[in-house]
Amino acid sequence: MNEITLIEAVNRALAYELAHDDSMVVMGEDVGVNGGVFRATDGLQARFGRERVFDTPLAETVIAGMSVGMAAQGLRPVAEIQFMGFIYSTIDQILNHASRLRNRTRGRLSCPMVLRAPFGGGIHAPEHHSESTEALFAHIPGLRVVIPSSPSRAYGLLLAAIRDPDPVVFLEPKRIYRLNKQAVEDNGEALPLDSCFVLRPGADLTVVSWGAMIHECQQAAELAAEAGVDIELIDLATIKPLDMETILESVGRTGRCVIVHEAARNCGVGAEIAARLAEEGLMSLMAPVRRVTGYDTVMPLFRLEEHYMPSTARILQAVNETMEYV
């Protein structure tokens, strides 16, 4: 089986579902002939035609709003927002409509749409191209927010997102779009939403993270292992709704938890996890929960971005401090 990158896995999942579900359409800026600025939709228009894979005018509000209209009428729109920095004008449509259409109509209409957007820092991109603002979406009731961290999870989670009966914001960590390859069978098998993935079992400390930061967390876990600290690494994967069961079970065994995210600290998703641990897992904690996050600043332009983003060293330091706490 050939090995593919995360972006190729996204492409493969889109192609699989387009081939198997006539109601699915792919839309967005430059997704047609150009195949998307990151090539997520490469070749899809040639294969599935301009009716089902099409460029929209440059207008994010209508991309999201049109998706709501399509989804309400039984299509499965999968729309690309070119960069997360340009998703904000869609929030009106997501918050006021997509995420509550089912509720407003007592189940009469629903909104099975997916908004995909690349996000996150670390690729020396221009201004507004590097932020991680998943927490904004995690605050919206009725919405799912999903972030893959490997090619196989990109494939399986995107399929799940497309098939899900409710709206999903699917955020793709672009720093790891091409970081490494993995064998991904094109079998159309979805992975479960609303559940974490335990990437590495461990007994001493639980690290919870998602997206590109999983990469640094894995490195930190390996280095910690050399120093005799056995880390359990959990990929959150679905940012909302949270699978606290898996996290509580893990922390129940390890008694220590470090949460790592690239996004700013204040009201980040890490805050929600920490709050839930305080509410439901306090008795099993042997040390305060720590967060390693971006700072509460504007994401700096790229000359300073490496200082903003959590590094393996910063993660290890938090791990060590948490381990040393008595």
């Binding site: 800026e29 430059d30 047609g32 150009n34 600025v37 460029d55 005018p57 440059l58």
Partner: peptide, 9 residues
């Protein structure tokens, strides 16, 4: 507009 022609815009 990147790859989108004025006439498609």
């Amino acid at each position: 507009a990147i790859s989108v022609r004025r006439t498609d815009q």
